[in-house]
C-alpha cells in the first residue's frame, strides 16, 4: 500500500522548485508539464523534467509527472519522460476508459526493457470523468489511484467553487466509491487558499472522513498539516490495538466471534484496524509489532 497522503505539485519549467522538490517530505512529488507550463514552454519543461528525474534526489517521495492531455502533447511527453523512470504519470482530464488505455499503450511502447512498469493516476476533472469514474478505475492494471480536480470540474458544471464544497460533494463521494470498488486509492482535490490554515485542516478532515487516502497540494506549507490529519491518532492506534487483541483472544478461546466494547468485531473492522496499525508503524507512530 503506497502512502499518498500528500501529492505536491511542482511547476515543470521552474528549476529552482524542481531541484528542491525532495526537501518538503511530501509522499509524492508531481512534476507538472500541464497547467503550470505555458504552451510555448512545453518543450523546455519536458527536457527540464526529464533531466530532473534522472539527477535530482527526491528521497522517498514518489516521482510523478503530470503529462499533458491526449489531445495536445501527451504523446511527446510520454515518449520523452517514461524512459527517465518516473514512478507514475498523472493523466489529466480523463473522460473515458479508452483515454487510459491509449495512455497505457503509449507508456508500454516507451518503457525500456527491464524498467519497472510506470503506474497511472487518473485525474478526473470533468462531469464525463466523474460519470465514468468506476470504468476508468478498472480500465488498466497500471491505474493505482483516482484523483479529483475540483477547479476545472466546477467550471464545467457552471457552479461556484466554495471552500465549504457542497457543489463538489457528490463528485467527491463518487470518486471515493469508484476507486474503492476498483480496489485502488482515491486522492482529493487541492485546497487552494494557501493562507487559510484552518480551512485547509477542515477540508482535509472532510476528505479523510469521506474516505480519501490523500490530498493533492499546491504549496509545500500545506504538507505537514495534511499529514497530521491523515495520520492515525493515538486514539486510533489504541483502538486498533484493542481490536487485534480481541481477535487474538477469540481465536485463542476457540470462539468464532470476537467482541469489543459490546460490539461484534467483524472483518471490515479488523481490516480497518490492521490498516491503522500498518500506517502507524510505517510512520513510526507505533513501535510494538502487534500483528
Amino acid at each position: 500500500m503506497d502512502l499518498r497522503r500528500t501529492m505536491l505539485f511542482m511547476p515543470g519549467n521552474n528549476p529552482g522548485m524542481l531541484q528542491n522538490g525532495g526537501v518538503f517530505g511530501a509522499d509524492a512529488i508531481i512534476l507538472d508539464l500541464e497547467d503550470a507550463v505555458a504552451p510555448k514552454e512545453k518543450d523546455a519543461a519536458r527536457l527540464l523534467v526529464a533531466q530532473s528525474l534522472k539527477t535530482v534526489d527526491y528521497g522517498t517521495s514518489e516521482k510523478i509527472v503530470r503529462i499533458n492531455p491526449l489531445d495536445t502533447f501527451a504523446r511527446k511527453d510520454i515518449e520523452d519522460i517514461v524512459p527517465c523512470k518516473p514512478d507514475a504519470l498523472l493523466v489529466p482530464k480523463v473522460e473515458s476508459p479508452e483515454d487510459i488505455q491509449e495512455v497505457a499503450r503509449l507508456v508500454a511502447a516507451a518503457e525500456k526493457s527491464g524498467q519497472a512498469p510506470v503506474k497511472l493516476i487518473a485525474l478526473l476533472e470533468t462531469p464525463c470523468g466523474i460519470a465514468e469514474a468506476y470504468r476508468i478505475a478498472k480500465a488498466d492494471k497500471r491505474v493505482v489511484a483516482l484523483a479529483f480536480g475540483a477547479e476545472d470540474y466546477t467550471a464545467s458544471l457552471g457552479a461556484k467553487r466554495t471552500k465549504e464544497g457542497t457543489e463538489i460533494f457528490s463528485a467527491r463521494t463518487i470518486v471515493v466509491n469508484s476507486a474503492a470498488a476498483a480496489g485502488i486509492q482515491s486522492i482529493d482535490t487541492p485546497f487552494t487558499d494557501v493562507n487559510d490554515r484552518e480551512g485547509l485542516i477542515a477540508d482535509t478532515q472532510l476528505a479523510k472522513q469521506l474516505g480519501f487516502k490523500g490530498k493533492l497540494s499546491i504549496n509545500p506549507r500545506q504538507i505537514d498539516e495534511i499529514h497530521n490529519v491523515f495520520n492515525p491518532t493515538e486514539q486510533d492506534i489504541n483502538w486498533a490495538g484493542r481490536v487485534i487483541k480481541a481477535i487474538r483472544k477469540a481465536e485463542a478461546e476457540g470462539s468464532g466471534v470476537a467482541s469489543l466494547d459490546g460490539k461484534m468485531v467483524d472483518a471490515p473492522i479488523v481490516a480497518r484496524a490492521e490498516r491503522i496499525l500498518f500506517l502507524a508503524r510505517l510512520l513510526g507512530l507505533a513501535e510494538e509489532v502487534v500483528l
Binding site: N20, V23, F24, N219, P220, R221, D224
Partner: peptide, 9 residues
C-alpha cells in the same frame, strides 16, 4: 520562501 519556512519549522 518554502525552503526558508521548512528550515524555520
Amino acid at each position: 520562501d518554502p525552503v526558508g519556512l521548512k528550515i524555520a519549522e
